[in-house]
């Protein structure tokens, strides 16, 4: 199972455990999910203003579940910790409680990115021992019991600021129209925001127009790996549409395997770009710039091809669904529903 976005992984966990409901359409919003670029051109997968409104809105529309924000960004951290305590100790069995913490402050946990700080969403429950809490981390496929004090210390990190809860009752199957509208909103067919941002950041560090010193570029690109893996969300979407078409999605499906290879190259080329940028910074060899620009152009071509293939599958699915539900108008081309956010 692909795990690429901690907020999405947390809210999808309960969907995956619910028969007849599929979490994969929710990943439509992940491949081009929001990120931020600061005024000094530092790329970041999270900003203090990130509240995931789009994901929360579409989660409600797709699955009928309201995600409530309990964290109050305007209140002191201790006030929020008191709120968290109250939520946890009065939790109905169906309630899922999410909190953002700083994984760097949990050395017992694997931190594959070794980022410091590393804001990350997990889910918490109390245990019979008041000094220990149960933590579920669907994004890293980890669950276990940790000292409560250690968890609270990681929540107290200035880098961590966020929390939500939702109740896993009356989860509903997503209507085709809603899935189609969500896809229409998520598919940015004419631009690739992540590659655009990388190009913009690179150019901000080079030449007469530079606004940042070249040696700042390594820091600016530091969080590329966390965002590059979001592109694996395309795999979920292809798998879902192909299964809807009645295809088996495994290693014998050469079309799917070929798409997965392209997605893998898309992700790994991000690492290649970052590596060359590091070389550029440490060597000062400006001849490397042309190669990086070329890689960025290739990324655009590659991702547009992936998006075109996915859009073709989507349109086929949509027409088939319309035909199934309205045989009388089967021959008419059905317009796509508009996103209603």
């Amino acid at each position: 199972m692909i795990k690429v976005h901690c907020f999405v992984s947390c809210v999808c966990e309960i969907i995956k455990r619910t028969p007849g409901v599929d979490h994969r359409p929710f990943y439509f919003g992940v491949w081009d999910a929001d990120f931020s670029v600061s005024a000094d051109k530092v790329l970041s997968y999270h900003s203090p203003h990130t509240r995931h409104e789009d994901f929360r809105n579409w989660y409600r529309q797709l699955y009928g579940i309201q995600i409530h924000e309990w964290f109050d960004a305007a209140a002191p951290k201790e006030h929020n910790i008191a709120t968290l305590n109250e939520l946890l100790y009065t939790r109905p069995s169906e309630r899922q409680i999410m909190v953002m913490l700083d994984m760097y402050r949990l050395p017992e946990r694997e931190n594959k990115f070794q980022q410091n700080p590393f804001p990350h969403y997990v889910m918490l429950e109390t245990t019979d021992n008041p000094e220990e809490w149960y933590m579920s981390d669907p994004d890293f496929r980890w669950e276990g019991i940790l000292p409560r004090a250690m968890i609270l210390d990681s929540i107290r990190s200035p880098a961590a600021a966020g929390g939500f809860y939702f109740d896993d009752v009356d989860i509903r199957h997503s209507a085709d129209e809603t899935v189609a509208a969500y896809f229409a909103q998520c598919m940015k067919a004419d631009h690739n925001p992540f590659t655009d941002a990388l190009r913009d950041i690179l150019r901000a560090h080079l030449g007469d127009e530079a606004t940042q010193p070249l040696n700042h570029l390594s820091l600016a690109f530091r969080e590329i790996p966390v965002m590059a893996i979001r592109k694996y969300a395309y795999e979920h979407a292809f798998a879902w549409f192909l299964e809807q078409r009645g295809e088996q999605v495994d290693e014998t499906n050469h079309f799917f395997e070929s798409l997965c290879d392209d997605i893998e190259t898309l992700v790994k080329t991000c690492t290649r770009i970052q590596f060359r940028a590091m070389k550029l910074v440490m060597s000062g060899d400006r001849s490397l710039v042309e190669g990086i620009e070329h890689l960025l152009d290739q990324q655009d071509d590659r991702e547009f091809r992936i998006k075109q293939a996915l859009t073709a599958l989507f349109e086929e699915w949509w027409q088939q669904r319309r035909s199934d539900t309205n045989a009388a108008s089967a021959t008419e081309h059905q317009p796509l529903p508009k996103a209603s956010t």
Binding site: F113, Q114, Q115, S218, P225, F275, M278, K279, M282, S283
Partner: peptide, 15 residues
């Protein structure tokens, strides 16, 4: 070592 530190190490070994 995170991925960035590893890159730094590789580039310094090369240069």
């Amino acid at each position: 070592l995170d991925s960035i530190m590893l890159m730094e190490l590789l580039v310094s070994l090369e240069l």
